[in-house]
Design a protein around this nucleic acid. Structure first.
Length: 153
DNA sequence: GCCAACGTTGGC
DNA sequence: GCCAACGTTGGC
C-alpha cells in the first residue's frame, strides 16, 4: 500500500528545481533518529513524497516526488569530507540511511506554511506543531490529497 | 540575524 | 538516570 511522506529540504541547499533538473536524487544527510527510523523501516519503493521547502523566505510544500529505491546505508556518514560525517557509523554497522527519490512534478501554486496551518486536515500533524524539527514525516492519504489540491495538480 | 524549541551529549 | 550545556532547526 502506498504511503505518503513529507520530506523537508532547504531550497538554498537542494530545492525542487534541483530535483527537477537532476530527475533523481539520493536523500542523504538525515541525522535524526526518528526521521531515520521512518526512512529505514517504513518508507517503501513507490511511496509518494511531498517536497517541502524549509528555512527559507517562503516555507511551503512545493511539489511531488516518489521513492525509487528503498533504504540503504548512508555512505556520507563515514566520509569525513562529507557535510554530515558521523564516525560512529561504519559500513559494517551503518547508523544512517538514505533513499532515492525521483522528481514527479512541481505544484502550480506552492502551498505556503500559513495555508498548511489553515487546513483542517493538517491538525495534529507534526508539521504544523510548534517547534517541530522532524525532517521526514508521514502524511495521511487525506492530508496528501488536501495538499495536492491546494497545489493545483 | 534573532530566538524559541528541540535532540543529543556528557558529567555526575 | 538526571539534567545542564550545547548545537541545530526553522519560522520570522
Amino acid at each position: 500500500m502506498t504511503r505518503y511522506w513529507l520530506f523537508k529540504s532547504e531550497p538554498d541547499c537542494f530545492g525542487i528545481s534541483d530535483l527537477k533538473r537532476r530527475k533523481k536524487a539520493t536523500w542523504d544527510g538525515v541525522r535524526n533518529y526518528q526521521a531515520r527510523n521512518y526512512l529505514r523501516d517504513e518508507v517503501q519503493l513507490g511511496d509518494v513524497v511531498v517536497f517541502y521547502h524549509s528555512s527559507c523566505a517562503e516555507p511551503a510544500a512545493v511539489g511531488i516526488a516518489k521513492i525509487v529505491r528503498a533504504a540503504y546505508a548512508d555512505k556520507t556518514a563515514w566520509d569525513s569530507h562529507s557535510e554530515h560525517p558521523d564516525p560512529k557509523s561504519t559500513p559494517k554497522n551503518p547508523i544512517w540511511y538514505v533513499v532515492d527519490v525521483a522528481y514527479v512534478h512541481t505544484f502550480q501554486h506552492a502551498v505556503l506554511l500559513k495555508v498548511l496551518h489553515a487546513m483542517p486536515e493538517m491538525n495534529g500533524s507534526p508539521l504544523t506543531q510548534r517547534g517541530n524539527r522532524l525532517s521526514i514525516l508521514p502524511l495521511s492519504e487525506k492530508q496528501y490529497r488536501a495538499i495536492k489540491k491546494e497545489g493545483g495538480r
